[in-house]
Amino acid sequence: MKRNRTRTLNVGNVGIGGKNPVRVQSMCNTDTRDILSTMTQIRQLADAGCEIVRVAVPDDEAAAALSALCDQSPLPLIADIHFDHRLALTALDAGVDGLRINPGNIGNEHRVDAVVRAAMAHGAPIRIGVNGGSLEKDLLRQYGGPTPEAMVESGLRHISMLEKRGFHDIKISLKTSSVLNTIAAYQLMAEKVDYPLHIGITEAGTLVRGAVKSAVGLGILLYEGIGDTLRVSLTHDPVAEIGVAYEILRSLGRRERGPEIISCPTCGRTEIRLIELAEKVEEALLNVEEVFTVAVMGCVVNGPGEAREADIGIAGGRGLGIIFRKGEVVRKVKGDENLLPEFMKEIEIFLKERSS
């Protein structure tokens, strides 16, 4: 798969666009004014593999918390700001690594000038975030609704406001809850500009629905070479967004992080609590960064053979588990209650041997 060549910019120490990998980011759902809870979530996101994190800045009190957050955050911090240019200036002075703000929504030319000057002085890029639910009224009238064409024109308007001030450290997002409209909007924009594109399906929904919509929409764009950074937007714990994002990237050969877990569907031959076992294995390996393949199978007869290519796996039967590597049996485990702890011990041994 070819990838569209875009400009390169830096968000803190994280490179975006050009030859950089597709970056994974998320947004805290905590109250930014609550520094402790926000920092806890930022660290959880970092442990899961998040590379850039965004926080909401709705008022002066939230902006005042940014300095402490910037000092402590292990990740580059983006301030999400709407309408109030003063909050953008405060955020930049606090040390944020970037802004998510639309220059056309912050008032007169002098306010835009002030924000652009401050962003330049601090070396902070600006993400223009076009949302299908909040397009300019004249564009809605002109195009008859939040069409892909309307979204792209809105984005180009905001881009022009920055470009005429000599500012080019720009990222762009064009999000709607419609998968097809989002795809079409990014395709159109990719033909018109070479700025890095932040892709995502906004308001995608709860865990399963949101993951499916994101996988379809982002998967198509990534397959076409579009997308330099992404967020999977879920009505769920933001940490879950990171796992879904990496699975989308892994499935397309774009990036790998952590183990790939393969498990068979349950059937009438299953004699262990396979769903529970697979979920517990996945949870136990959540923060492991090493790339390898783990199999969790429900049949001791066929499991090792069906998962022959897995680096390490377990197959369970009636009161018995078989741990195997590359299809070859390593040892047997008796008792369903011993399957998980013994398997995790073998994974630990496997990883130690691999790193030695």
Rank of each mutant, 00 (worst) to 15 (best):
N108C: 12
L66S: 02
G335A: 01
N20Q: 08
K164A: 09
A118P: 11
V208C: 09
I172C: 01
V216P: 10
I262R: 01
V281S: 04
L285Y: 08
N29V: 15
P74C: 02
N10E: 13
Q44G: 01
L188R: 08
T90K: 15
I159P: 03
Q72F: 14
T176S: 11
Y186A: 03
R100W: 10
G98R: 03
P304T: 01
R43W: 09
L277K: 05
L87Q: 11
V291A: 03
E247T: 05
R354H: 13
E290C: 09
N181S: 14
E283Q: 13
I183E: 09
H85A: 11
L75Q: 04
V193L: 01
A56R: 00
D138A: 13
I78N: 01
G217L: 10
F350E: 06
A204V: 03
V232P: 12
K352T: 15
E309C: 07
R318Q: 08
N108I: 12
G313P: 13
R141E: 15
Q142F: 07
L77D: 01
N287P: 05
G18C: 00
I242S: 00
R257L: 02
L277C: 04
K326I: 00
A79Q: 13
T266I: 07
T182G: 14
A62E: 11
S160Q: 14
L89G: 00
E290H: 12
V291P: 05
R100F: 07
G132L: 11
I261M: 04
G145I: 01
D34S: 06
G303L: 00
R318K: 09
I220N: 08
E241H: 06
G107Y: 13
M1P: 12
N302K: 10
D71Y: 06
K334F: 12
E337R: 07
V193I: 10
L99W: 10
I199Q: 04
E247S: 03
H198E: 06
A184H: 08
R331K: 15
G317N: 06
A48M: 12
A88N: 14
L221T: 02
V24E: 12
N10A: 14
V212Y: 08
A79N: 11
C70A: 10
I101Y: 06
A245W: 01
R141D: 15
R43T: 08
V193T: 04
V244G: 01
N20D: 07
R111T: 05
G303R: 03
A114S: 13
I101E: 08
G335Q: 02
R127W: 00
N302W: 11
A204Q: 05
G313S: 11
G335E: 05
E337Q: 06
G123R: 11
E224H: 11
D169R: 02
V300Y: 02
L197W: 02
R231P: 15
I275E: 10
K332Y: 14
M297W: 04
L75T: 07
V130C: 05
D194Q: 12
N181I: 10
H82Q: 04
E337W: 03
I312V: 04
D237W: 08
L140R: 03
A184W: 09
A190L: 00
L45T: 12
R165L: 05
G104W: 03
P125K: 07
R127E: 00
H198F: 12
G219P: 14
V96Q: 06
P74H: 02
V96S: 03
G133K: 08
A118L: 09
I106T: 14
C70D: 12
E191A: 15
